[in-house]
């Protein structure tokens, strides 16, 4: 059984169909890249998988380990192992990163009938992950993403991913706003999480990220559909020729 199975998905936003019959199968252990022009529906797809309200699902289904994902609350999805690193991580003033991480991790563990981490155990985990991502400790004491630079916000998303150990990681333009060094750090953080039990969907506009995180499969998305899927050479082809050929087909 595929970890994630999307069949003929159709999604409307404010009376416009933005996802128009999309199919996608992702198996555990695989890394998929999704590329596609601005407005083709990549973020919409990731939001719908994570359960963001405001989208109308007009057709199709999403199965996660064979279960109907669309019927679950966003927090149930998180507890079952779905994680979305947002294209635009938001700021939460007044909630320190540390308190946020603890509340989120414990909520997920509770939903899975696992024991909450003790405080020292939790702190050690956070510290280890933060160190590996070059995130200074004092950043964790600030409000979630408050006053963080664009790159710091992205690193904070990966910090959460590493801490929550999800089985499906969706990374929506994790490379945007990262300088070259930060890209390397983030990519190695992501690579460290690759495992036969875990799948990743990497949404990006740039081949460079895929040089760091080599995908098994590359999909080209345009106008709300997967127009073509192939190996990583597809990313090179896109870089050379652009999206025009796929848009015509749509």
């Amino acid at each position: 059984m595929a970890l994630l199975e999307i069949r003929d998905l159709r999604v409307g936003v404010e009376d416009r169909e933005v996802i128009r019959g999309l199919d996608l199968n992702v198996n555990a252990g695989e890394v998929h890249a999704i590329m596609g022009p601005n407005g083709s529906g990549k973020s919409t797809l990731s939001h719908v998988i994570a359960g963001k309200p405001g989208y109308e699902i007009t057709g199709g289904q999403i199965l996660f380990r064979g279960e109907n994902l669309l019927r679950m609350e966003p927090n149930e999805r998180a507890a079952k192992g779905v994680f979305l690193a947002f294209q635009y991580p938001i700021e939460i003033p007044g909630v320190t990163t540390m308190n946020f991480l603890r509340a989120a991790l414990n909520a997920q563990r509770k939903a899975r009938d696992q024991q909450e981490f003790s405080t020292p155990e939790f702190l050690k985990r956070v510290r280890d992950v933060a160190d590996s991502l070059n995130i200074p400790q004092d950043m964790l004491k600030r409000g979630v993403n408050v006053g963080f630079s664009g790159g710091e916000k992205k690193r904070n998303e990966i910090l959460q991913m590493a801490l929550f150990e999800p089985s499906l990681c969706i990374l929506d333009e994790i490379d945007s706003g990262l300088d070259i060094d930060a890209l390397r750090i983030v990519a190695s953080g992501i690579n460290a999480l690759r495992s036969p039990k875990r799948a990743m969907i990497v949404i990006t506009h740039y081949r460079r990220l895929l040089d760091h995180i080599e995908p098994e499969i590359v999909h080209v998305m345009s106008k709300g559909r997967v127009m073509k899927s192939g190996g990583k050479e597809l990313a090179l082809e896109l870089e050379a020729c652009g999206y025009a050929q796929f848009e015509d087909a749509a």
Binding site: A50, G51, K52, P53, G54, E73, P74, N75, R77, A78, A79, L84, F86, P89, I90, I92, P93, G94, V95, F100, A103, A104, L105, A107, Q108, A111, G143, Q160, F164
Partner: peptide
């Protein structure tokens, strides 16, 4: 709503997400 969703996407129930944000607000 976007803050509430962010927290829910990280595992908090809707109620807990709201409570956390309200506490932050009066805090």
């Amino acid at each position: 709503d976007t803050l509430v969703f962010y927290l829910r996407a990280r595992g908090l129930s809707e109620k807990d997400a709201q409570m956390l944000l309200i506490k932050a607000f009066f805090g």
